[in-house]
Design a binder for these strands. Structure first.
Lengths: 153, 153
DNA sequence: GGTATTTACTTTAAGCTTAAAATATTATAC
DNA sequence: GTATAATATTTTAAGCTTAAAGTAAATACC
Protein backbone atom coordinates (compact mmCIF):
# COMPACT_ATOMS: atom_id res chain seq x y z
CA UNK A 1 0.00 0.00 0.00
CA UNK A 2 1.37 3.35 -1.01
CA UNK A 3 1.71 5.89 1.76
CA UNK A 4 -0.49 8.72 0.60
CA UNK A 5 -0.27 10.99 3.62
CA UNK A 6 1.51 14.33 3.44
CA UNK A 7 4.93 14.80 5.00
CA UNK A 8 3.58 16.43 8.13
CA UNK A 9 1.10 13.65 8.86
CA UNK A 10 3.75 11.00 8.19
CA UNK A 11 6.02 12.66 10.73
CA UNK A 12 3.20 12.78 13.26
CA UNK A 13 2.40 9.10 12.76
CA UNK A 14 6.09 8.23 13.04
CA UNK A 15 6.43 10.07 16.36
CA UNK A 16 3.25 8.53 17.78
CA UNK A 17 4.30 5.01 16.82
CA UNK A 18 7.72 5.54 18.38
CA UNK A 19 6.16 6.96 21.53
CA UNK A 20 3.80 4.00 21.77
CA UNK A 21 6.51 1.46 21.06
CA UNK A 22 8.99 2.93 23.54
CA UNK A 23 6.40 3.10 26.28
CA UNK A 24 5.14 -0.41 25.56
CA UNK A 25 8.66 -1.83 25.48
CA UNK A 26 9.51 -0.37 28.86
CA UNK A 27 6.18 -1.51 30.28
CA UNK A 28 6.76 -5.02 28.96
CA UNK A 29 10.20 -5.10 30.56
CA UNK A 30 8.72 -4.05 33.89
CA UNK A 31 5.92 -6.62 33.65
CA UNK A 32 8.35 -9.42 32.82
CA UNK A 33 10.66 -8.53 35.67
CA UNK A 34 7.83 -8.14 38.16
CA UNK A 35 6.61 -11.57 37.13
CA UNK A 36 9.90 -13.46 36.91
CA UNK A 37 11.79 -11.82 39.74
CA UNK A 38 8.96 -10.85 42.07
CA UNK A 39 6.02 -13.13 41.16
CA UNK A 40 3.65 -10.20 40.86
CA UNK A 41 2.03 -7.98 38.23
CA UNK A 42 2.04 -4.31 37.28
CA UNK A 43 -1.59 -3.71 38.35
CA UNK A 44 -0.82 -5.24 41.76
CA UNK A 45 2.28 -3.06 42.00
CA UNK A 46 0.26 0.03 41.10
CA UNK A 47 -2.34 -0.67 43.77
CA UNK A 48 0.34 -1.32 46.38
CA UNK A 49 2.15 1.88 45.38
CA UNK A 50 -1.07 3.87 45.80
CA UNK A 51 -1.62 2.38 49.25
CA UNK A 52 2.01 2.91 50.23
CA UNK A 53 1.59 6.55 49.25
CA UNK A 54 -1.62 6.93 51.26
CA UNK A 55 -0.57 5.71 54.67
CA UNK A 56 -4.03 6.15 56.17
CA UNK A 57 -5.59 3.83 53.65
CA UNK A 58 -8.07 4.51 50.87
CA UNK A 59 -11.64 3.65 50.08
CA UNK A 60 -12.26 1.57 46.99
CA UNK A 61 -13.60 4.57 45.07
CA UNK A 62 -10.67 6.76 46.15
CA UNK A 63 -8.33 4.01 44.98
CA UNK A 64 -9.92 3.70 41.56
CA UNK A 65 -10.04 7.49 41.20
CA UNK A 66 -6.37 7.79 42.12
CA UNK A 67 -5.32 5.05 39.69
CA UNK A 68 -7.74 6.31 37.05
CA UNK A 69 -9.23 2.89 36.39
CA UNK A 70 -12.78 1.60 36.72
CA UNK A 71 -14.08 0.73 40.18
CA UNK A 72 -14.92 -2.82 39.13
CA UNK A 73 -11.32 -3.26 38.08
CA UNK A 74 -10.00 -2.40 41.53
CA UNK A 75 -12.39 -4.89 43.16
CA UNK A 76 -10.63 -7.83 41.50
CA UNK A 77 -7.06 -6.69 42.11
CA UNK A 78 -7.76 -5.83 45.74
CA UNK A 79 -9.44 -9.22 46.28
CA UNK A 80 -6.39 -11.07 45.00
CA UNK A 81 -4.00 -8.89 47.02
CA UNK A 82 -6.12 -9.57 50.10
CA UNK A 83 -5.99 -13.32 49.41
CA UNK A 84 -2.21 -12.99 49.32
CA UNK A 85 -2.34 -11.25 52.69
CA UNK A 86 -0.68 -8.10 51.35
CA UNK A 87 -3.55 -5.74 52.05
CA UNK A 88 -6.24 -5.44 54.71
CA UNK A 89 -9.82 -4.27 54.42
CA UNK A 90 -11.61 -2.71 57.35
CA UNK A 91 -15.30 -1.89 57.37
CA UNK A 92 -16.20 1.74 57.84
CA UNK A 93 -18.10 1.95 61.13
CA UNK A 94 -20.18 4.94 60.06
CA UNK A 95 -20.97 3.83 56.51
CA UNK A 96 -21.70 0.16 56.08
CA UNK A 97 -21.35 0.37 52.30
CA UNK A 98 -17.76 1.57 52.52
CA UNK A 99 -14.47 0.02 53.53
CA UNK A 100 -10.95 1.27 53.97
CA UNK A 101 -8.09 -0.57 52.29
CA UNK A 102 -4.47 -0.40 53.40
CA UNK A 103 -1.24 -2.36 53.14
CA UNK A 104 -0.75 -5.06 55.75
CA UNK A 105 2.59 -5.13 57.58
CA UNK A 106 3.81 -7.85 55.21
CA UNK A 107 2.45 -5.80 52.30
CA UNK A 108 4.49 -2.82 53.45
CA UNK A 109 7.63 -4.91 53.73
CA UNK A 110 6.95 -6.52 50.36
CA UNK A 111 6.37 -3.18 48.65
CA UNK A 112 9.55 -1.74 50.08
CA UNK A 113 11.49 -4.44 48.24
CA UNK A 114 9.45 -4.04 45.06
CA UNK A 115 9.80 -0.25 44.98
CA UNK A 116 13.56 -0.44 45.34
CA UNK A 117 13.96 -2.89 42.48
CA UNK A 118 11.48 -0.92 40.38
CA UNK A 119 13.50 2.26 40.89
CA UNK A 120 16.69 0.44 39.89
CA UNK A 121 15.06 -0.84 36.70
CA UNK A 122 13.88 2.66 35.77
CA UNK A 123 17.32 4.07 36.54
CA UNK A 124 18.79 1.49 34.21
CA UNK A 125 16.24 2.14 31.45
CA UNK A 126 16.67 5.94 31.62
CA UNK A 127 20.47 5.68 31.63
CA UNK A 128 20.93 6.79 27.99
CA UNK A 129 19.62 10.31 28.69
CA UNK A 130 21.52 12.95 30.66
CA UNK A 131 19.75 15.47 32.86
CA UNK A 132 19.28 18.05 30.13
CA UNK A 133 17.95 15.51 27.68
CA UNK A 134 15.51 13.98 30.12
CA UNK A 135 14.29 17.47 30.99
CA UNK A 136 13.72 18.16 27.31
CA UNK A 137 11.84 14.88 26.97
CA UNK A 138 9.73 15.70 30.02
CA UNK A 139 8.84 19.13 28.61
CA UNK A 140 7.87 17.79 25.20
CA UNK A 141 5.75 15.02 26.71
CA UNK A 142 4.02 17.52 28.98
CA UNK A 143 3.13 19.63 25.97
CA UNK A 144 1.46 16.60 24.39
CA UNK A 145 -0.24 15.51 27.60
CA UNK A 146 -1.62 18.97 28.35
CA UNK A 147 -3.04 19.47 24.87
CA UNK A 148 -6.72 18.79 25.33
CA UNK A 149 -8.21 17.19 22.29
CA UNK A 150 -11.67 18.22 21.17
CA UNK A 151 -13.73 15.06 21.52
CA UNK A 152 -16.14 16.27 18.81
CA UNK A 153 -13.71 16.64 15.96
CA UNK B 1 5.74 8.04 52.70
CA UNK B 2 8.86 10.10 52.38
CA UNK B 3 10.54 10.01 49.00
CA UNK B 4 13.96 8.64 49.82
CA UNK B 5 15.38 8.31 46.32
CA UNK B 6 18.25 10.52 45.13
CA UNK B 7 17.61 13.41 42.76
CA UNK B 8 18.72 11.47 39.70
CA UNK B 9 16.42 8.54 40.38
CA UNK B 10 13.51 10.88 41.13
CA UNK B 11 14.03 12.57 37.77
CA UNK B 12 14.13 9.19 36.03
CA UNK B 13 10.91 8.08 37.70
CA UNK B 14 9.27 11.39 36.84
CA UNK B 15 10.17 11.04 33.16
CA UNK B 16 9.01 7.42 33.01
CA UNK B 17 5.69 8.22 34.64
CA UNK B 18 5.13 11.12 32.24
CA UNK B 19 6.05 8.95 29.26
CA UNK B 20 3.66 6.24 30.42
CA UNK B 21 0.86 8.68 31.16
CA UNK B 22 1.18 10.54 27.86
CA UNK B 23 1.23 7.35 25.87
CA UNK B 24 -1.68 5.87 27.81
CA UNK B 25 -3.73 9.06 27.45
CA UNK B 26 -3.30 9.12 23.70
CA UNK B 27 -4.04 5.41 23.46
CA UNK B 28 -7.19 5.86 25.54
CA UNK B 29 -8.32 8.69 23.26
CA UNK B 30 -7.80 6.48 20.21
CA UNK B 31 -9.63 3.53 21.81
CA UNK B 32 -12.58 5.72 22.79
CA UNK B 33 -12.88 7.24 19.33
CA UNK B 34 -12.51 3.90 17.57
CA UNK B 35 -15.29 2.57 19.77
CA UNK B 36 -17.69 5.51 19.71
CA UNK B 37 -17.17 6.74 16.16
CA UNK B 38 -16.23 3.52 14.39
CA UNK B 39 -17.59 0.67 16.57
CA UNK B 40 -14.24 -1.11 16.60
CA UNK B 41 -11.20 -1.61 18.83
CA UNK B 42 -7.48 -0.85 18.69
CA UNK B 43 -6.44 -4.52 18.40
CA UNK B 44 -8.83 -4.94 15.47
CA UNK B 45 -7.44 -1.79 13.89
CA UNK B 46 -3.88 -3.05 14.35
CA UNK B 47 -4.65 -6.37 12.68
CA UNK B 48 -6.41 -4.64 9.80
CA UNK B 49 -3.48 -2.22 9.40
CA UNK B 50 -1.05 -5.14 9.25
CA UNK B 51 -3.16 -6.84 6.56
CA UNK B 52 -3.61 -3.59 4.65
CA UNK B 53 0.18 -3.24 4.63
CA UNK B 54 0.71 -6.84 3.43
CA UNK B 55 -1.47 -6.93 0.35
CA UNK B 56 -0.69 -10.59 -0.34
CA UNK B 57 -2.01 -11.65 3.04
CA UNK B 58 -0.22 -13.16 6.01
CA UNK B 59 -0.15 -16.44 7.85
CA UNK B 60 -1.30 -16.43 11.45
CA UNK B 61 2.26 -16.77 12.71
CA UNK B 62 3.52 -14.01 10.41
CA UNK B 63 0.72 -11.80 11.70
CA UNK B 64 1.53 -12.39 15.35
CA UNK B 65 5.25 -11.92 14.65
CA UNK B 66 4.58 -8.64 12.84
CA UNK B 67 2.34 -7.33 15.59
CA UNK B 68 4.63 -8.73 18.29
CA UNK B 69 1.83 -10.38 20.20
CA UNK B 70 1.22 -14.03 21.10
CA UNK B 71 -0.17 -16.34 18.44
CA UNK B 72 -3.11 -17.31 20.62
CA UNK B 73 -4.00 -13.64 20.86
CA UNK B 74 -4.25 -13.25 17.09
CA UNK B 75 -6.54 -16.29 16.84
CA UNK B 76 -9.29 -14.53 18.77
CA UNK B 77 -9.06 -11.17 17.04
CA UNK B 78 -8.95 -12.75 13.58
CA UNK B 79 -11.97 -14.94 14.42
CA UNK B 80 -14.03 -11.94 15.40
CA UNK B 81 -12.91 -9.93 12.34
CA UNK B 82 -13.84 -12.90 10.15
CA UNK B 83 -17.27 -13.08 11.80
CA UNK B 84 -17.69 -9.41 10.89
CA UNK B 85 -16.79 -10.26 7.29
CA UNK B 86 -13.82 -7.89 7.29
CA UNK B 87 -11.16 -10.52 6.65
CA UNK B 88 -10.94 -13.77 4.75
CA UNK B 89 -9.05 -16.95 5.56
CA UNK B 90 -7.87 -19.29 2.83
CA UNK B 91 -6.38 -22.71 3.48
CA UNK B 92 -2.83 -23.24 2.27
CA UNK B 93 -3.02 -25.97 -0.37
CA UNK B 94 0.48 -27.28 0.32
CA UNK B 95 0.37 -27.15 4.14
CA UNK B 96 -2.89 -28.19 5.69
CA UNK B 97 -1.89 -26.73 9.06
CA UNK B 98 -1.51 -23.22 7.63
CA UNK B 99 -3.86 -20.58 6.32
CA UNK B 100 -3.49 -17.19 4.73
CA UNK B 101 -5.39 -14.23 6.10
CA UNK B 102 -6.20 -11.07 4.16
CA UNK B 103 -8.64 -8.18 4.15
CA UNK B 104 -11.93 -8.81 2.36
CA UNK B 105 -13.08 -6.14 -0.12
CA UNK B 106 -15.35 -4.68 2.56
CA UNK B 107 -12.46 -4.88 5.02
CA UNK B 108 -10.29 -2.86 2.63
CA UNK B 109 -12.98 -0.24 2.22
CA UNK B 110 -13.59 -0.15 5.96
CA UNK B 111 -9.90 0.21 6.77
CA UNK B 112 -9.50 3.03 4.28
CA UNK B 113 -12.02 5.03 6.27
CA UNK B 114 -10.51 4.04 9.61
CA UNK B 115 -6.96 4.90 8.56
CA UNK B 116 -7.96 8.34 7.40
CA UNK B 117 -9.73 9.19 10.63
CA UNK B 118 -6.89 7.70 12.65
CA UNK B 119 -4.38 9.91 10.81
CA UNK B 120 -6.53 12.97 11.49
CA UNK B 121 -6.67 12.15 15.19
CA UNK B 122 -2.90 11.75 15.37
CA UNK B 123 -2.42 15.01 13.47
CA UNK B 124 -4.62 16.70 16.01
CA UNK B 125 -2.86 15.14 18.99
CA UNK B 126 0.63 16.01 17.69
CA UNK B 127 -0.38 19.57 16.87
CA UNK B 128 1.40 21.18 19.85
CA UNK B 129 4.86 20.20 18.54
CA UNK B 130 6.52 21.83 15.54
CA UNK B 131 8.78 19.87 13.18
CA UNK B 132 11.96 20.53 15.12
CA UNK B 133 10.38 19.60 18.42
CA UNK B 134 8.85 16.40 17.12
CA UNK B 135 12.22 15.46 15.64
CA UNK B 136 13.84 16.02 19.00
CA UNK B 137 11.18 13.90 20.67
CA UNK B 138 11.66 11.15 18.10
CA UNK B 139 15.43 11.16 18.66
CA UNK B 140 15.16 11.01 22.44
CA UNK B 141 12.60 8.19 22.30
CA UNK B 142 14.80 6.24 19.89
CA UNK B 143 17.69 6.53 22.31
CA UNK B 144 15.52 4.96 25.02
CA UNK B 145 14.07 2.32 22.72
CA UNK B 146 17.46 1.25 21.38
CA UNK B 147 19.03 0.94 24.80
CA UNK B 148 19.01 -2.79 25.43
CA UNK B 149 18.51 -3.59 29.05
CA UNK B 150 20.45 -6.43 30.61
CA UNK B 151 17.77 -8.92 31.62
CA UNK B 152 20.02 -10.35 34.35
CA UNK B 153 20.65 -7.28 36.39
C1' DG C 1 -41.82 8.83 58.53
C1' DG C 2 -41.84 7.28 53.77
C1' DT C 3 -40.40 7.69 49.07
C1' DA C 4 -36.79 8.98 45.77
C1' DT C 5 -32.18 9.77 44.72
C1' DT C 6 -27.49 9.30 45.39
C1' DT C 7 -23.46 6.85 46.80
C1' DA C 8 -20.18 2.72 47.57
C1' DC C 9 -19.27 -1.22 45.93
C1' DT C 10 -19.65 -5.85 43.39
C1' DT C 11 -21.04 -8.66 39.61
C1' DT C 12 -21.47 -9.69 34.83
C1' DA C 13 -20.46 -9.95 29.96
C1' DA C 14 -17.29 -9.14 26.49
C1' DG C 15 -12.84 -8.53 24.78
C1' DC C 16 -7.70 -8.38 25.25
C1' DT C 17 -3.41 -10.64 26.71
C1' DT C 18 -0.15 -14.21 27.94
C1' DA C 19 2.06 -18.79 28.78
C1' DA C 20 1.41 -23.40 28.50
C1' DA C 21 -0.92 -27.44 26.86
C1' DA C 22 -3.13 -29.71 23.10
C1' DT C 23 -3.86 -30.89 17.96
C1' DA C 24 -2.76 -31.71 13.63
C1' DT C 25 0.43 -31.82 10.05
C1' DT C 26 4.94 -31.70 7.91
C1' DA C 27 9.80 -32.64 7.90
C1' DT C 28 13.78 -35.23 9.51
C1' DA C 29 16.52 -39.17 10.94
C1' DC C 30 17.57 -43.73 10.71
C1' DG D 1 8.85 -46.92 6.12
C1' DT D 2 8.59 -45.68 10.91
C1' DA D 3 9.77 -43.04 14.88
C1' DT D 4 11.09 -38.44 16.20
C1' DA D 5 11.24 -33.68 15.98
C1' DA D 6 9.67 -29.39 14.34
C1' DT D 7 6.00 -26.31 12.80
C1' DA D 8 1.25 -23.95 12.42
C1' DT D 9 -2.40 -23.16 14.84
C1' DT D 10 -6.02 -23.46 18.52
C1' DT D 11 -7.50 -24.11 23.18
C1' DT D 12 -7.27 -23.29 28.05
C1' DA D 13 -6.59 -20.98 32.41
C1' DA D 14 -5.66 -16.89 34.64
C1' DG D 15 -5.58 -12.10 35.03
C1' DC D 16 -6.58 -7.33 33.36
C1' DT D 17 -9.95 -3.95 31.61
C1' DT D 18 -14.29 -1.64 30.72
C1' DA D 19 -19.28 -0.40 30.68
C1' DA D 20 -23.45 -1.58 32.38
C1' DA D 21 -26.42 -3.77 35.57
C1' DG D 22 -27.21 -5.08 40.23
C1' DT D 23 -27.15 -4.63 45.49
C1' DA D 24 -27.21 -2.37 49.63
C1' DA D 25 -26.95 1.55 52.45
C1' DA D 26 -27.06 6.51 53.21
C1' DT D 27 -29.09 10.97 52.15
C1' DA D 28 -32.60 14.26 50.51
C1' DC D 29 -37.11 15.66 49.92
C1' DC D 30 -41.74 16.19 51.16
Amino acid sequence: MVNHYDANTRQHLRVWLKLLKTSTNIETTLRERLKKECSTTLPRFDVMAALDHHTDGLRMTELSDFLMVSNGNVTGIVSRLAESGLIERTQDTHDRRAQKVCLSPSGQAEFKQLAQRHAQWIDDIMQPLNTEESNTLLTLLERLANHKVDKND
